[in-house]
């Protein structure tokens, strides 16, 4: 797939990074604001889809390494999540073992991002972002291999 026209690429350069920052913000503030791990990870994967649509497959596959998404991001998130779940095991599975006490919140009046809930949100966000990006990248790679065989010269989109 050839890259799209200059207008689309300029719009991508302007808005894609805000999309990434918004996704990370949704993941990190999942304990206090609407959103959480799954939603923020999906927004980060939308960023990858946006880059893939506007810049074409060959450039993206030369930019990123798929093993980052598959091996590092997804499995790190999953292992962190399960490890955090097992660390509360002396009391129970999924016990929140270092939450901030309620009295400290009443004294300071401020909610700190503590407890396993925030870290589990970040772990699930890492996992979902890696997983959905991996789906899109590997699907596009399989399609590109097919179309390389059949379509030799593809007409450009608008140039």
């Amino acid at each position: 797939m050839k890259p799209l026209s200059l207008i689309v690429r300029t719009g991508c350069n302007l808005f894609a990074w805000f999309m990434l920052v918004f996704g990370v913000n949704v993941v990190v503030h999942g304990y206090a604001s609407p959103g959480g791990g799954f939603q923020g990870g999906a927004i980060v994967a939308t960023f990858i889809a946006f880059l893939l649509v506007s810049y074409g497959g060959e450039k993206i596959h030369s930019w990123v390494n798929e093993k980052i998404y598959d091996l590092i991001l997804e499995e790190t998130g999953l292992l962190l999540f399960i490890t955090l779940a097992f660390m509360g095991l002396p009391t129970s599975f999924f016990y929140n073992f270092f939450t901030i006490p309620w009295e400290a919140y009443q004294q300071t009046g401020r909610l700190f991002p503590q407890g396993t809930t925030a870290i589990m949100s970040i772990a699930v966000g890492i996992e979902v972002a890696g997983a959905l990006s991996m789906v899109i990248l590997s699907m596009f790679k399989g399609i590109r291999l097919v179309s390389d065989r059949q379509i030799e010269e593809e007409p450009g989109h608008d140039r």
Partner: peptide, 19 residues
């Protein structure tokens, strides 16, 4: 239900359409 709204907007409207 803003949580479900964010999930629906990002997955349903963007990712599944791309796929």
């Amino acid at each position: 239900a803003p949580d479900v709204a964010i999930a629906e907007a990002s997955i349903g409207a963007a990712l599944s359409t791309t796929i």
